[in-house]
Amino acid sequence: MSESIIKIENMNKWFGDFQVLKDINLEVERNKKIVVCGPSGSGKSTLIRCINRLEEHQKGSIIVDGTELNEDTKNIEHIRAEVGMVFQQFNLFPHLSILDNCTLAPIWVKKLPKKEAQDLAMKQLEKVQIADQAQKFPGQLSGGQQQRCAIARALCMEPKIMLFDEPTSALDPEMIKEVLDAMVNLAKGGMTMIVVTHEMGFAKEVADEVIFMDEGMIVEKAPTKDFFANPKSDRTKLFLSQIL
């Protein structure tokens, strides 16, 4: 059994009076792929946003790669540099070219020389097959291309963990596949991944474990095969019957 890279214990989070996450316990081992699913409003996105502290939790602890997330700012930026994140709305920087989107953080956060950062960026863009679009601006690309660029941008920081927040939900159906392909390739490369998604095909293909969340709680957590073959909770069964 290998060590856990993410360890969440009794984590609780409130938005005002509303409790979004209730007693979350989760351990993710290195190189594992976790898929998080559940109905909207169940706290899936909030959970992974807590892992790189885009949201702050109020109770419990989150330990990422041996560092606990707390008020210490220096820590946070260090953690964030090691945890890549891909968003539903891509969130590319529209004023920068695709290449500059990818080199910005390596140059200014990791202090790589410009040339080196560009080589690295081209390599990552190559992997997601949009190297030929490097000089264009995000607004000139299709949704699928933008999302693949966002993946490349996160990879340029050479993160240890990748978080995906519904990466295909804002895409046209025919573009979903190209993004999923890029993610499958990444998974096969051995990246630790936590993916919030409704793409059950993707879950079956790459996930080691599937987590089902509802109303801010982890309802079920099981190895992929068991999760789909014989879900234990009724709530999970209902959910699966609706989306499969």
């Binding site: 964030r80 945890v83 994140m85 200014w108 996160a154 920081m157």
Partner: peptide, 25 residues
């Protein structure tokens, strides 16, 4: 808000985020 999220998730601190991502736009 996504622009702030993206910059933060790449490990940029406040001033880097403002200088390279937020203010230019």
């Amino acid at each position: 808000r996504g622009q702030y999220d993206a910059a933060k998730s790449l490990g940029m601190g406040y001033w880097k985020m403002q200088t390279f991502v937020i203010l230019p736009q």
